[in-house]
Simulated scan of single mutants.
Amino acid sequence: MQPVFEAYADLSIRRACAFVGLATATLMVALSFDAVLSCRSGAQLVALLAVGLVMAAWRAPHRNLRHSEVYALLIDSGLPRGRLATTEMQAMLAEVLRERLLWHAERVSLIALGLWGLALLLWMLS
């Protein structure tokens, strides 16, 4: 059951990250007249995404996951509500969600670090 939870948690998290990535890329293109400013702004927004993912991971074990997108995806996949509503399944889902959120936050923070490095490099070259 855990690989199914991981797959749907990844789908939900990546969908949210894609929307934030689209907004960040749009802003960076809008600021492309100043490459350093564009990279700094992108790095700040991506770092905010990483902080948001860490905060969501911190909250995951304490919130009602029956109102989450992951739960809705699991119901749509055909898993019975009664089985998902048990305390053990909710705890397992919360732990998987927390783990996957932290995994994604780690990767997103590396992207932010890369953008900061690029901004520093461009600043030194200009």
Score class of each variant (00 low, 15 high):
Pro3Tyr: 06
Val4Phe: 11
Glu6Met: 08
Glu6Val: 05
Ala7Ile: 04
Asp10Leu: 12
Leu11Ser: 01
Ile13Cys: 02
Arg14Asn: 15
Ala16Arg: 04
Cys17Leu: 14
Ala18Val: 04
Val20Asp: 09
Thr24Ser: 06
Ala25Val: 11
Leu31Met: 14
Val36Pro: 02
Ser38Lys: 04
Ser38Phe: 05
Arg40Tyr: 07
Arg40Glu: 15
Ser41Asn: 05
Ser41Phe: 05
Ala43Asp: 01
Gln44Trp: 08
Gln44Ala: 12
Leu45Ser: 03
Val46Leu: 08
Ala47Tyr: 00
Leu49Arg: 02
Leu49Cys: 08
Ala50Trp: 03
Arg59His: 11
His62Pro: 06
Asn64Thr: 11
Arg66Gln: 06
Arg66Pro: 02
His67Pro: 01
His67Leu: 13
Ser68Lys: 07
Glu69Tyr: 04
Ala72Trp: 14
Asp76Tyr: 07
Asp76Gln: 13
Pro80Ser: 15
Pro80His: 15
Pro80Arg: 15
Arg81Ala: 10
Arg81His: 09
Arg83Leu: 14
Met89His: 08
Met89Leu: 12
Gln90Ser: 09
Ala91Leu: 14
Met92Ile: 11
Leu97His: 01
Arg98Tyr: 07
Glu99Ser: 04
Leu101Tyr: 01
Ala105Gln: 00
Ser109Ile: 03
Ile111Gly: 04
Leu115Ala: 06
Gly117Asn: 10
Leu118Thr: 09
Ala119Ile: 02
Ser126Arg: 15
